[in-house]
Protein backbone atom coordinates (compact mmCIF):
# COMPACT_ATOMS: atom_id res chain seq x y z
CA UNK A 1 0.00 0.00 0.00
CA UNK A 2 1.12 3.58 -0.47
CA UNK A 3 1.95 5.79 2.46
CA UNK A 4 -1.17 7.35 3.94
CA UNK A 5 -1.32 10.56 5.90
CA UNK A 6 -3.36 10.03 9.04
CA UNK A 7 -2.81 13.35 10.76
CA UNK A 8 -1.04 16.63 10.08
CA UNK A 9 -0.92 19.45 12.60
CA UNK A 10 0.77 22.82 12.81
CA UNK A 11 1.24 23.72 16.45
CA UNK A 12 2.08 26.99 18.11
CA UNK A 13 4.89 26.73 20.65
CA UNK A 14 2.77 26.66 23.76
CA UNK A 15 3.35 24.07 26.45
CA UNK A 16 -0.33 23.95 27.29
CA UNK A 17 -1.14 22.63 23.82
CA UNK A 18 0.93 19.48 24.21
CA UNK A 19 -1.77 17.60 26.00
CA UNK A 20 -4.36 18.54 23.39
CA UNK A 21 -2.07 17.18 20.70
CA UNK A 22 -1.47 14.04 22.74
CA UNK A 23 -5.20 13.47 22.94
CA UNK A 24 -5.66 14.21 19.23
CA UNK A 25 -3.11 11.56 18.35
CA UNK A 26 -4.80 9.14 20.73
CA UNK A 27 -8.19 9.66 19.09
CA UNK A 28 -6.70 9.41 15.62
CA UNK A 29 -4.91 6.16 16.37
CA UNK A 30 -7.99 4.70 18.03
CA UNK A 31 -10.11 5.61 15.03
CA UNK A 32 -7.71 4.25 12.43
CA UNK A 33 -6.21 1.23 14.13
CA UNK A 34 -8.48 0.41 17.04
CA UNK A 35 -5.40 -0.75 18.87
CA UNK A 36 -5.28 -0.19 22.61
CA UNK A 37 -1.53 -0.36 23.02
CA UNK A 38 -0.83 1.90 20.06
CA UNK A 39 -3.47 4.29 21.33
CA UNK A 40 -1.38 4.74 24.48
CA UNK A 41 2.12 4.62 23.06
CA UNK A 42 1.93 6.98 20.09
CA UNK A 43 0.34 9.80 22.09
CA UNK A 44 3.21 9.49 24.56
CA UNK A 45 5.65 9.62 21.64
CA UNK A 46 4.00 12.76 20.30
CA UNK A 47 4.08 14.47 23.69
CA UNK A 48 7.72 13.66 24.39
CA UNK A 49 8.86 14.82 20.95
CA UNK A 50 6.79 17.98 21.20
CA UNK A 51 8.27 18.76 24.61
CA UNK A 52 11.74 18.54 23.09
CA UNK A 53 10.74 20.71 20.14
CA UNK A 54 9.32 23.36 22.46
CA UNK A 55 12.28 23.27 24.83
CA UNK A 56 15.05 23.33 22.26
CA UNK A 57 13.50 24.85 19.13
CA UNK A 58 12.91 28.47 18.20
CA UNK A 59 10.00 29.70 20.33
CA UNK A 60 8.41 31.91 17.68
CA UNK A 61 8.27 29.23 15.02
CA UNK A 62 5.48 26.73 14.64
CA UNK A 63 6.09 23.02 15.06
CA UNK A 64 4.61 20.46 12.69
CA UNK A 65 3.43 16.97 13.49
CA UNK A 66 2.67 14.29 10.95
CA UNK A 67 1.41 10.78 11.44
CA UNK A 68 1.62 8.51 8.43
CA UNK A 69 1.42 4.78 7.87
CA UNK A 70 2.06 2.23 5.20
CA UNK A 71 1.98 -1.54 5.12
CA UNK A 72 5.10 -1.84 7.23
CA UNK A 73 5.15 0.91 9.80
CA UNK A 74 3.54 3.88 11.46
CA UNK A 75 5.68 7.00 11.55
CA UNK A 76 5.18 10.04 13.76
CA UNK A 77 7.37 13.00 12.84
CA UNK A 78 7.89 16.27 14.65
CA UNK A 79 9.65 19.08 12.80
CA UNK A 80 10.79 22.34 14.36
CA UNK A 81 13.05 25.26 13.63
CA UNK A 82 16.40 25.50 15.35
CA UNK A 83 18.86 28.32 15.64
CA UNK A 84 21.96 28.19 13.49
CA UNK A 85 24.71 26.59 15.50
CA UNK A 86 22.29 25.38 18.14
CA UNK A 87 24.16 23.49 20.83
CA UNK A 88 21.16 21.23 21.24
CA UNK A 89 21.60 19.51 17.88
CA UNK A 90 24.92 17.83 18.71
CA UNK A 91 23.46 16.78 22.05
CA UNK A 92 20.45 15.29 20.28
CA UNK A 93 22.56 13.41 17.78
CA UNK A 94 24.87 12.11 20.47
CA UNK A 95 21.92 10.89 22.48
CA UNK A 96 20.45 9.07 19.49
CA UNK A 97 23.82 7.49 18.72
CA UNK A 98 24.09 6.38 22.34
CA UNK A 99 20.59 4.97 22.18
CA UNK A 100 21.21 2.96 19.06
CA UNK A 101 23.99 1.06 20.82
CA UNK A 102 21.34 -0.85 22.69
CA UNK A 103 19.65 -3.72 20.98
CA UNK A 104 17.36 -4.17 23.94
CA UNK A 105 15.16 -1.13 24.65
CA UNK A 106 14.70 -2.17 28.28
CA UNK A 107 18.45 -2.15 28.83
CA UNK A 108 18.64 1.28 27.21
CA UNK A 109 15.87 2.60 29.41
CA UNK A 110 17.43 1.20 32.56
CA UNK A 111 20.77 2.74 31.58
CA UNK A 112 19.12 6.11 31.03
CA UNK A 113 17.38 5.90 34.40
CA UNK A 114 20.73 5.04 35.95
CA UNK A 115 22.15 8.25 34.48
CA UNK A 116 19.27 10.13 36.07
CA UNK A 117 19.91 8.34 39.37
CA UNK A 118 23.60 9.18 39.25
CA UNK A 119 22.96 12.77 38.14
CA UNK A 120 22.57 15.94 40.07
CA UNK A 121 18.81 15.67 40.52
CA UNK A 122 15.52 15.78 38.69
CA UNK A 123 16.22 19.28 37.36
CA UNK A 124 19.30 18.22 35.44
CA UNK A 125 18.81 19.43 31.86
CA UNK A 126 18.85 17.45 28.64
CA UNK A 127 18.83 13.97 30.06
CA UNK A 128 17.25 12.70 26.85
CA UNK A 129 15.07 10.40 28.92
CA UNK A 130 12.06 11.15 26.73
CA UNK A 131 13.85 9.81 23.66
CA UNK A 132 14.83 6.63 25.46
CA UNK A 133 11.30 6.27 26.70
CA UNK A 134 10.07 6.43 23.10
CA UNK A 135 12.46 3.63 22.22
CA UNK A 136 11.47 1.46 25.17
CA UNK A 137 7.90 2.24 26.07
CA UNK A 138 6.85 3.35 22.58
CA UNK A 139 8.74 0.56 20.81
CA UNK A 140 9.85 3.02 18.14
CA UNK A 141 13.05 3.50 16.21
CA UNK A 142 14.17 7.11 16.15
CA UNK A 143 15.57 8.84 13.08
CA UNK A 144 16.88 12.40 13.01
CA UNK A 145 16.89 14.48 9.81
CA UNK A 146 18.82 17.74 9.74
CA UNK A 147 19.20 17.94 5.97
CA UNK A 148 17.08 21.09 5.76
CA UNK A 149 18.95 24.10 7.09
CA UNK A 150 17.44 25.57 10.20
CA UNK A 151 15.07 22.68 10.76
CA UNK A 152 15.25 19.37 12.55
CA UNK A 153 12.88 16.46 12.15
CA UNK A 154 12.65 13.53 14.50
CA UNK A 155 10.72 10.52 13.27
CA UNK A 156 9.54 7.76 15.54
CA UNK A 157 8.97 4.65 13.48
CA UNK A 158 6.99 1.76 14.78
CA UNK A 159 6.57 -1.54 13.05
CA UNK A 160 3.04 -2.41 11.99
CA UNK A 161 3.51 -5.85 13.52
CA UNK A 162 2.00 -4.59 16.74
CA UNK A 163 -0.10 -1.81 15.35
CA UNK A 164 -3.40 -3.65 15.06
CA UNK A 165 -5.69 -3.56 12.08
CA UNK A 166 -6.04 -0.47 9.98
CA UNK A 167 -5.75 0.74 6.43
CA UNK A 168 -3.63 -1.62 4.42
CA UNK A 169 -3.68 -4.42 6.96
Amino acid sequence: MSRQILLELVIRTDWNRIDSVRQAVSHCVAAVFGDVELKDSLPMVSAELLENAFKYGLPDEDVTLSLVSDANEVVLTITNAVAAGSRHLPVLKARLSWLMQFGDPFVAYTAALQQVYDGSGPDAPESGLGLVRIYYEGRCRLVCDTSHAGRVSISAKRSRDAAGSGPGS
Binding site: D19, P43, M44, A47, Y117, P122, L129, G130, R133
Partner: peptide, 11 residues
Protein backbone atom coordinates in the same frame (compact mmCIF):
# COMPACT_ATOMS: atom_id res chain seq x y z
CA UNK B 1 -0.19 10.18 31.81
CA UNK B 2 3.22 11.30 33.05
CA UNK B 3 6.06 12.74 31.03
CA UNK B 4 9.73 11.83 31.21
CA UNK B 5 10.39 14.72 33.56
CA UNK B 6 8.01 13.11 36.04
CA UNK B 7 9.94 9.84 35.78
CA UNK B 8 13.01 11.67 36.97
CA UNK B 9 11.13 12.56 40.12
CA UNK B 10 10.21 8.93 40.76
CA UNK B 11 13.89 8.08 40.45
Amino acid sequence: YANAAAWKCFV
